[in-house]
Design a protein around this nucleic acid. Sequence first.
DNA 1: TCCTCAATCAAACACTTGTTTTAATCCGAT
DNA 2: ATCGGATTAAAACAAGTGTTTGATTGAGGA
Lengths: 220, 220
Amino acid sequence: MIDDTRQRLIDAAGAIFAEKGYEAASVRDICQQASANIAAVNYHFGEKKSLYVAAVRHAQSCADSENPEMTWPADMSPVERLRAHILQMLQRKLEGDKPAWHLGIMLREMAFPTEACAAVVEDYVRPMANGMRAILLDLLGHDFPEEKGNMIGFSIVGQVLFYYVHQPVIRLLIGESAHDALTVQKLADHITNFSLAAMGLAPSLGHSTPTPPITTKAMT
Amino acid sequence: MIDDTRQRLIDAAGAIFAEKGYEAASVRDICQQASANIAAVNYHFGEKKSLYVAAVRHAQSCADSENPEMTWPADMSPVERLRAHILQMLQRKLEGDKPAWHLGIMLREMAFPTEACAAVVEDYVRPMANGMRAILLDLLGHDFPEEKGNMIGFSIVGQVLFYYVHQPVIRLLIGESAHDALTVQKLADHITNFSLAAMGLAPSLGHSTPTPPITTKAMT
DNA sequence: TCCTCAATCAAACACTTGTTTTAATCCGAT
DNA sequence: ATCGGATTAAAACAAGTGTTTGATTGAGGA
């Protein structure tokens, strides 16, 4: 059976782990949500912790398969690749078509790491970081200093992650309606334009010229 | 000292809550670290949850008193106020002279909120957000659209928080030595220059085109 | 001195936790 | 039909949880 109880356990566990954290999630709750017996988790995974890492690995393997390698058309300009990259990151996090726990459990792992964090970094974060670095190298020149490039990458990713990690704070801070008005497309355009302007590849924000979405070709 | 064990309990609780999270922290561990009896927490606070919110409130009251209201000299240019503000945020988080759990427990609360989150936002986040908004209004003009201003503020704060929230990921990603090379001063300069350039108030990163630093007053 | 009352302590409480055990069930191969 | 391995089920396990109890302390006031 594809719909094994083992898979049902991983799905239920991921959802509950992502929502309540590792310690607060009980195997009884997980088994009940998975319509499985209490002993099932120990039969299939041996112990609770193994079920947790199985859920994390499943989440990142799904994230891998759901996102088609981020391979952009070769004739796409670096600027447009950056724009598409930022939009995709935001969509992946805020437009939850897939089960929301896939990224929730990984963000929890990245903020308060357990032993599964290293695997997440290697299998999920590093490929994404390499993709970002490739774009930045095309944008800034391949002899750009590595440390500066790292910081620029962190500046971009930090902007994106902020809207996900601290979403509840933003809601409380600016109100529900103002938060709902921040659509993914609007956020992606802002972050892209903000970052491009910081790198000198687009007109700066700040002066209220109704800036149309920048679609300039990259300067090589 | 009037409330001896009560304060010891709050200190021990804050440290353990920040490190292990609410559920994983046991009152027995807390009482042992505080050299108090197991019944002390229930005698002084009634229940575990009240001790937690007491620790959170203590952390934010300390954060308030430790940071002298962020009142800059009146003749300081908005650009320099922004630079000082960013540096101060980073110092507060990464240069731990004070007990590290003061901000650790609040970041945990902001990322995965409990019922204490609203209080943290109102008493700690909102004043800081107002300070940031005041600087941005001086920088961009007091008739700047609110939503755009919010997003710019989030872009700046997101860059800062990234280095704290995802510090373990950064360590794994670029290595210990490269991470240690990212001093607070270096990060503050980068984030400030990056953000100023994005707003068109400083030369852009990316190319060494020495555009003279713009330190003009806000255009109204 | 006696009393009071807040504070501390050891012990036990009732409950949940993760895990194990043992028996029952399914299901394809013989 | 029968066997045997794989899976599920119910119950019990030991350990840990937050919380409560009731006794004990020790300083301050009448």
